[in-house]
């Protein structure tokens, strides 16, 4: 397990003045502007912001899928220059491969990421057992042999979460993993994710447009402005854990909600 015994206040991920322009029709379109923030090891950071403000883009810079136009992202000691094996990412859509059964979809990272890929043949049974365990943890026991099109959208989203976790990444990047789900499933998965995180204490950066979700899950909530995305507020959430759905109706929760809302309002031009 990651994070064991290391100082908890060490900055594990640092965005340093990250600006990113997309080239579009020969013009530069600024997606995110001058984002600086740091994430402690084992911290659960949520970045909230309106649609199109550059949340996905920001996560992709941390995943090494796109290079910032200016600034850099550091994970551990080094600047991110490409995808890192200690990072797991779940995308906005589940993006499961339709010719693979759920179990095989979850196992995919172990076929690719070192050092698992070298051992894959020998350890296949152990890896499958680990995947089954993870699937059971998100409530997908019994669905291992279904194809993606044979399970619901929410179940696909759970499987995609398992795929992001199977290689035990130290840093988990989640791009609106629950955005497309109904309220019941979404709140169910908040709890699933919280439980997994409390057990394993990986570092999480989750982006969402849902402030309730942000406060429920986060140690720290950052809010971004509309495009080009800039940080407009940083709010620590020190509600006790494990948080329950009832907690979202307590005065403390509501107060945090309103505090963030107010800051977002002030951040507007």
């Amino acid at each position: 397990m990651p994070a064991g015994g290391r100082p908890a206040d060490e900055a594990f991920v640092r965005f340093e003045g990250v600006t990113l322009d997309y080239a579009h029709d020969g013009r530069a379109v600024r997606a995110v502007e001058d984002i600086s923030l740091s994430v402690r090891r084992g911290e659960f950071v949520v970045i909230a912001g309106p649609s199109g403000c550059g949340k996905t883009t920001l996560l992709k810079t941390a995943a090494g899928l796109v290079r910032p136009t200016r600034g850099e992202v550091r994970v551990g000691a080094a600047a991110v220059a490409g995808p890192l094996k200690i990072v797991g990412m779940a995308f906005q859509n589940p993006i499961l491969l339709p010719w693979r059964r759920t179990l095989d979809n979850v196992l995919l990272p172990l076929e690719i990421v070192a050092p698992y890929r070298e051992r894959y043949r020998r350890e296949q049974a152990a890896y499958a057992a680990r995947a089954r365990e993870l699937l059971a943890a998100v409530g997908l026991a019994g669905f291992e042999d279904r194809f993606p099109w044979q399970i619901s959208g929410g179940q696909q989203q759970r499987a995609s979460l398992c795929r992001a976790l199977i290689h035990q990444p130290e840093l988990l990047l989640l791009d609106e993993p629950f955005g497309a789900l109904d309220a019941f499933t979404r709140e169910d998965l908040w709890q699933v994710l919280q439980t997994l995180w409390m057990e394993r204490r990986f570092t999480v950066i989750l982006v969402t447009h849902d402030l309730r979700e942000a406060i429920f899950l986060a140690d720290t909530v950052y809010v971004m402005s509309a495009r080009p995305g800039r940080l407009v507020s940083r709010t620590p959430v020190d509600l006790p854990r494990p948080r329950t759905l009832e907690d979202t109706f307590t005065p403390a929760f509501t107060a945090t909600y309103h505090a963030i809302r107010r800051q977002v309002g002030e951040g507007r031009p």
Binding site: K60, A63, G64, L65, G82, P83, L84, K85, V87, M89, F91, N93, I95, L97, L108, P109, E111, I112, V113, A114, H167
Partner: peptide, 19 residues
């Protein structure tokens, strides 16, 4: 999107081709 899933795992071009 499929390529991104594999690339985010550090997959090579050959991995992406095979998988």
């Amino acid at each position: 999107e499929w390529q991104d899933v594999l690339r985010s795992l550090g997959a090579s071009r050959w991995d992406i081709f095979r998988k």
